[in-house]
């Protein structure tokens, strides 16, 4: 980490209570505002865009920082300064943990179904490494460096934020990359997957195989792609939705472990092979 303070120092309360208070109260205000707005669904042709409070929260969070609105509104700059931003880094890692617990609690009761699900379900999980295989070369071609690691390690949903934030720090280049893909996915992911699902059968891959591919660890993206796919082959709709949901649940369970033990080592290995040569970088 490039911070002058370590994570353990940053989360010390002694003498830093005003910093904690300003940050936590600001977050509380953002949470209340965004939850009051609530979930909004906008339908555009074939897809529904679902706007969740977390999306407004990240937008407001970015907007109130010194580089953006803080520039013109000096009161904001007094509330959220570089000190609060520095504290926000380690706080993200901690705030993610309840979500991790909830993932486990969602999957535990269904563990029997997962064990029954066949070899196809399990092996197709390896296909998630496709993000690295085609994503990393494209990212490097477009001139990204260590950001490419975070941006292409997976489709960068919340678990990936947790893993990358913990391994590299959310303030690292890798953290920038993972947040960038996360933000694009949050804003455009369902639209992209709805379009992909509706044209996927053109590839001549079997709809059942495509259905398994729809479950990539995000409920909204799975719903968008599987719904669109099912609409193109209505006679298989029920099986498609069942396969997609099972696959999505599987990624929910193994996604974290596959990322830690497969995708992250793989993306680092590939980066060493084809990435730019540079000294002094971790």
């Amino acid at each position: 980490m490039s911070e002058q303070k370590t994570e353990a120092e940053l989360i010390k309360f002694q003498g830093r209570i005003p910093v904690f208070a300003r940050l936590l109260l600001t977050v509380l205000v953002i949470v209340i505002i965004t939850e009051l707005i609530g979930t909004k669904t906008i339908s555009v042709g074939i897809a529904n865009i679902v706007l969740l409070p977390m999306l407004y929260a990240v937008v407001i969070g970015v907007l109130i920082t010194p580089d953006v609105l803080g520039k013109s509104i000096t009161v904001l700059e007094k509330v959220i300064s570089s000190e609060e931003i520095a504290l926000a880094g380690p706080l993200v890692t901690l705030a993610l943990l309840p979500l991790g617990v909830k993932y486990g609690l969602l999957v535990g009761p269904a563990i029997g179904q997962v064990v029954k699900a066949g070899p196809a379900f399990i092996l197709q999980e390896l296909g998630n490494l496709g993000t690295v295989l085609i994503g990393l070369p494209v990212a490097l071609m477009l001139g990204l460096r260590r950001e490419a690691i975070g941006a292409t390690v997976s489709i960068c949903r919340e678990p990936t934020l947790g893993i990358i934030a913990e391994r590299y720090g959310i303030n690292s280049p890798e953290g920038t990359g993972v947040l960038a893909t996360y933000l694009v996915g949050t804003v455009l992911g369902t639209i992209f997957y709805a379009l992909l699902g509706s044209i996927a059968t053109l590839t001549r891959l079997h709809p059942y195989a495509l259905a398994m591919a729809c479950g990539m660890g995000s409920a909204s993206m799975m719903t968008a792609s599987a719904g669109a796919l099912a609409a193109t082959v209505p006679e298989m709709a029920d099986t498609i939705l069942a396969y997609a949901a099972t696959s999505n649940m599987l990624t929910g369970i193994d996604g974290v472990y596959a990322e830690v033990f497969l995708a992250l080592p793989f993306v680092n290995w590939l980066y060493k092979k084809i990435g730019p040569r540079e000294g002094g970088n971790k």
């Binding site: 940050l23 929260a57 407001i60 970015v62 931003i85 993200v92 979500l99 919340e158």
Partner: peptide
């Protein structure tokens, strides 16, 4: 559980 995370994450990338 996701809303506070994203609010904090937004602030953390502010600089």
């Amino acid at each position: 559980t996701t809303t506070p995370i994203l609010a904090i994450a937004g602030i953390s990338v502010g600089n």
